[in-house]
């Protein structure tokens, strides 16, 4: 596992305490897991994702990500309806390790209330949380 200083946390994202990230693009929100999360998990072997159209509330578990010897639940950063899932992860779950913020995105949602993003962490707050834990 890497030191926190060796990991990457883009400025323009929102983060959750459970290590998901959220990015706003054209009014929709893309969701994935942070570099820290993928590093902690190790080689990701499987991602269980919801279907398009599924509705979730902020904090709901929407799927799981599995490494060889661990399973983590994925939690919704904000309310929303799933409009797209990253199908390529079914055959290439390693994208979560290789490119957590780009090719390894998990979901795109239509937010129920985008202002909820302001209630979760920005990069600095997330880094602070990681360093303190």
């Amino acid at each position: 596992m890497k030191e926190i200083s060796e990991l990457d946390f883009p400025e323009d994202l929102y983060y959750t305490e459970e290590h998901e990230w959220a990015r706003v693009t054209d009014g929709n929100v893309t969701i994935g897991i942070s570099d820290y999360a993928q590093d902690q998990l190790g080689d990701v072997v499987f991602v269980e994702m919801p279907a398009s159209g599924d509705q979730f509330k902020k904090g709901d578990a929407f799927g799981t990500v599995e490494s060889v010897k661990a399973v983590s639940e994925l939690y919704m950063p904000i309310d929303g309806e799933v409009i797209r899932v990253n199908q390529t992860l079914e055959d290439a779950p390693e994208l979560l390790n290789q490119s957590p913020y780009a090719d390894g995105w998990i979901l795109e949602i239509k937010p129920g209330d985008a202002s909820q993003l302001e209630t979760i962490l920005n990069r600095d707050a997330y880094l602070k949380m990681l360093k303190e834990s």
Binding site: D43, V45, E66, V68
Partner: peptide
Amino acid sequence: LDETLAAR
């Protein structure tokens, strides 16, 4: 053995 390959 490569357990990651086996599970992926």
